[in-house]
Design a protein around this nucleic acid. Sequence first.
DNA 1: AATCTTTTGCAACTGAGTGTCATCTGGCAC
DNA 2: GTGCCAGATGACACTCAGTTGCAAAAGATT
Lengths: 146, 146
Amino acid sequence: MTKTPVKHAPKKPDYEKALRKAGIRITRPRKIILGILGETEDHPDALEIFRRAEQVDKSISLSTVYRTMKLLEEMGAIHRHAFEGGPSRFEQAGGDHHDHLIDMDTGDVIEFRSDRIEQLQQEIARQLGYDIVHHRLELYGRRRKD
Amino acid sequence: MTKTPVKHAPKKPDYEKALRKAGIRITRPRKIILGILGETEDHPDALEIFRRAEQVDKSISLSTVYRTMKLLEEMGAIHRHAFEGGPSRFEQAGGDHHDHLIDMDTGDVIEFRSDRIEQLQQEIARQLGYDIVHHRLELYGRRRKD
DNA sequence: AATCTTTTGCAACTGAGTGTCATCTGGCAC
DNA sequence: GTGCCAGATGACACTCAGTTGCAAAAGATT
């Protein structure tokens, strides 16, 4: 089990090429959004992505951000996380799988990974007669003050 | 680790008494909603509870269902689960803690519990310098066809 | 450059849930 | 039982996140 935060792999997979191959057009808004997702280390929501995109091109629209997030999610290029009581937040896919600990005071998201937990989940599903398609494990907590 | 579905304790805690003690009035809509929650073995959403309540009293309103769910949640009488891509679903509290496996084809919810996973979560949070307030573990899967 | 889709921005819409407010009612006092 | 009144209700307007319809704009391909 890894207990230290997962470090983002310095990934710059060529999404543009992948998109074009899937018959999807590389438009100006999409280029901008991909750029933002590639840069960021945090887990922004659609509105935050929209605000960052506006800095680059004032004419971009929020619907386009939503549409693009959905498209990229369906392509598997990003992951959507619907943490409690907030809008969906996104992160680039391509790193290795991890789960999240959400700081309830700041909203910060810490990534972690536990192979032991993954394995236990598999066992449980198998015993119940199921195949896991995906899972969601989120810890909601506060910084320990000692 | 328990791998068999958690069986609902045959719980009929006297919520009416508890509510009254908390200075909360036992009204007709609340009685009906508590009755529904006490009967059901599944995890209905607000609309479903509303529909069931309507059978009993045609005059009940959806807002009251929402308000009552929020009230009961704050009192700790029920748990709210926001599974992926759907409205919140509720279950009576009072049983022991468990997590959920969601059947992606039927929407069925299977309860399970793994002390080992709970323990690993604690360890992880501690190592990251956090105290867990609560967590969410959901497995999304399909029945294994063999 | 001409064409033909796909995509965009805008605005109208949806679904889940919350807030407002006039009316109603549970529960206690008498 | 009747009266009282804070708390609860139903109706409906509203919010928030996200989606959809549509005419205009812009990729890609020739």
